[in-house]
Design a protein around this nucleic acid. Structure first.
Length: 358
DNA sequence: TCTGGGGTCCTAGGACCC
DNA sequence: TCTGGGGTCCTAGGACCC
C-alpha cells in the first residue's frame, strides 16, 4: 500500500451551461442544444456552449451563432442566463469544499483545482464526482496530476465523466508527440511561432534550448513555455480568495455606428455601468481603458492612469479624453470600457500603473 | 465561418530622471 | 558634434483562457 501524498485534481463540469439548461428543461435531453448571446441566431453573437449532440455537427464554443444555426437548423438555441449558471456553479464549488481535506481553487464557472493528500487519488476523484452528481445532478470529469498543468491537461483525456492521471511518469508518453497547441497557455499564434523555430511537438518544446525561446518570446515567457512543455510548474493548489484587478464592459453594436454623438453616448453609458459596478468596491479606480473595434475587425485600445484621489467626475473627464482619440467618421463595431482598481497590499497602492487588460 | 464578453499576464518602446 | 548607462513610469498592444 502506498503512503498518502499530495495530489492536484482538476474538476471540469461536462458541457456545463448546456447541462444546466437541460436540467431545468428536461425535454431538451438528447437534442442539440446551443447557448449563446440572446438566443437569436440573426444577431452578432457567438456560441457559449454546445451540448454533445450539437458538437457532433461541428458546433462548438466561440463559433458565430449564425453559423451554428446554419449547421443545425433544428437546434434549440437559448440565451445566456449568467445568474442561473452562477448559482449552479456555487453549488458545485460548495460541494468540492465539503470534501475531506480539499483545498479548492476556482478557475471559472465550471472548473476548479482541488488539492488533497491521499493514497488513492482515483478513489477520491470518483467519490468527488458522485458527490457533485448527487448534490447538483451534474456530471464532471477529473484530471489527476502532480502539477496543476498536468492535472488540467489530464481532464481532457477523462471526458466525459471519466478520470485520468497524468504525472511526470507518463507525461512524455502521453503528451510528447502531440502538437504544442494542446498545451494550456499555447494558442495558435505561439504554436506558429514555435513551428518557425522548428518546434512542433511537446517533446521538442521540452528539449528546446532556453536561449532560443527567450530570444523569441522574452525572458519570462520563453522559460514559461519550456516549462509547459515539460508539464512542470506549480504543485500547490492556492485557495486565496480572488481579488479582481479590474472590471470592464463592452458592447458589440448590431449595426456599426459612425455618428460621433452616438459614439460618445455609448461610451458614457458603458462608463456609467462600469463605475456603478466598481463603486461597491472600496478600492479606488487607478486606471481606465477604452477599446474600440473599427469595422470590420481592427481593434485599438487607449489607456490612462488615474490618480487614486480622483472623484467620479474627474474619472469621467479622463475617460472623455480617451473617447476623443477615436477616429471620427470610421464605422465602429464594438466599444469597451475598463476600470482598473488599486490592488490591496501593493506597496505603491494608489499608484498602480495601468496594465491594459484587453 | 467571421468572429461575444469577461478576465489575466507579458512585452516593447518612449519619456523622463539621475 | 556626438552623445553613456541604468532605472522607473506610462501607454499601446499581443496572446491566452473560460
Amino acid at each position: 500500500m502506498s503512503a498518502a501524498r499530495p495530489w492536484v485534481l482538476h474538476v471540469d463540469l461536462d458541457q456545463f451551461i448546456a447541462a444546466v439548461e437541460v436540467l431545468r428543461n428536461p425535454e431538451l435531453a438528447g437534442r442539440p442544444v446551443i447557448v449563446g448571446g440572446r438566443g437569436d441566431p440573426t444577431e452578432r453573437a457567438v456560441v457559449s456552449t454546445a451540448s454533445y449532440e450539437a458538437r457532433r455537427f461541428g458546433v462548438g464554443s466561440g463559433m458565430p451563432l449564425r453559423i451554428a444555426a446554419r449547421k443545425i437548423p433544428d437546434a434549440v438555441i437559448l440565451p445566456v442566463d449568467a445568474p442561473a449558471y452562477l448559482a449552479a456553479s456555487d453549488e458545485v464549488m460548495t460541494t468540492l469544499r465539503a470534501q475531506p481535506g480539499a483545498v479548492v481553487q476556482v478557475l471559472g464557472w465550471d472548473e476548479a483545482f482541488v488539492g488533497v493528500k491521499t493514497e488513492d487519488p482515483e478513489g477520491y476523484a470518483r467519490r468527488l464526482q458522485q458527490a457533485v452528481l448527487e448534490r447538483t445532478r451534474l456530471h464532471c470529469s477529473i484530471g489527476i496530476g502532480d502539477t496543476l498543468v498536468r492535472a488540467k491537461i489530464a481532464t481532457g483525456f477523462g471526458k466525459p465523466r471519466g478520470v485520468f492521471r497524468l504525472t511526470a511518469e507518463n507525461w512524455r508518453e502521453v503528451m510528447g508527440d502531440r502538437p504544442t497547441k494542446e498545451l494550456w497557455g499555447v494558442g495558435s499564434k505561439v504554436s506558429k511561432r514555435l513551428a518557425l523555430l522548428g518546434i512542433h511537438t511537446v517533446a521538442e518544446l521540452a528539449a528546446a534550448e532556453p536561449a532560443l525561446l527567450t530570444g523569441e518570446f522574452g525572458p519570462k515567457m520563453g522559460l514559461w513555455y519550456r516549462q509547459l512543455g515539460r508539464g512542470d510548474g506549480a504543485t500547490v493548489v492556492d485557495d486565496t480568495p480572488w481579488v479582481p484587478r479590474g472590471h470592464s464592459k463592452e458592447t458589440t453594436f448590431q449595426a456599426d455606428i459612425v455618428d460621433p454623438s452616438e459614439v460618445e453616448r455609448a461610451a458614457r453609458a458603458l462608463l456609467d455601468q462600469v463605475l456603478d459596478e466598481v463603486a461597491t468596491d472600496d478600492r479606488p479606480v487607478v486606471g481606465l481603458g477604452l477599446k474600440v473595434r473599427y469595422a470590420p475587425f481592427v481593434t485599438k485600445t487607449f489607456t490612462k492612469k488615474i490618480p487614486a484621489t480622483a472623484d467620479r467626475d474627474a474619472v469621467i473627464e479622463r475617460a472623455l479624453e480617451l473617447v476623443a482619440k477615436i477616429e471620427p467618421g470610421r464605422p465602429i463595431r464594438l466599444l469597451g470600457v475598463r476600470a482598473e482598481m488599486a490592488m490591496p497590499g501593493d506597496a505603491r497602492e494608489g499608484h498602480t500603473p495601468t496594465r491594459s487588460g484587453w
